[in-house]
Amino acid sequence: MKVWFALAKGVVLESLRRKDLWVVAILGFLMMISAGALGFFGFEGLQAFAKDLAATVLGLFSTVIAVITTARLMPDEIKNRTLYPLLARPIRRLDLLIGKLLGAIFVTWMSFLLLCIATGLALLVFRVQFEPIMAQYVLCKLLGLAVLCSLTFALSTIMTQAAAATVSFIFAFGSSMITRALVMAHESNPRGAGYGFKVLNGVLPQFGLFDLGGRAANMNWGPVPIWVIGSLFAYAIVYSSAMLFISWMKFNRQAI
């Protein structure tokens, strides 16, 4: 456990010093401030729009950070040979993978929470009131980002950094669309391959489920039931573990 956190701390420190995180935070803040300016200069009644924009900005930037931060971790370790002194220590390769993944998740979470604060301040301009669904939105988003990091991490151990990032972006941004397409395809052919559809749906990452942005942005949506949050939490653990297992299967046998 100590080893994992030591490795994670290294990843976080590197990311902080790289300043990518700050660039993204500033970008997000600027975008929200410009939206805030609209509210300030008399466009009353744009709360839903402002919240929707906030959710979009948060979703977009946190996804970019998650994918970019995670996709380069292992390929960079191998390319820069920083892996050797680490693996020469009394640790298992699985420990290294867990530590690195945890680091990526922490960086992503930190940047997301930073963006949340920035957008929260900008939303104040629109006199947007806090609602419990917003806290749930943040919680579920954190879980979804952890799943995204795990997926990207697994992909980065089996393909190139660029390919892993591209595939992750496709899944992250297209998850809901893929699900809708599956549902419609299943409707068109319910008898043919019903079981196949279920398997495919189970295997594909369900990022759409973690996005409560639609509810948080619009009016009078009550909090999501606790069983849903629990299920999402369980899903995040299971899916991330599966992705970690895939990474380990590949990396454990890999000659470095």
Partner: peptide, 14 residues
């Protein structure tokens, strides 16, 4: 056809 995934989707999306 998604079972619990569908239920969660309906609970989390608007």
């Amino acid at each position: 056809f998604r079972g619990i995934f569908g239920d969660i989707d309906r609970a989390t999306s608007s």
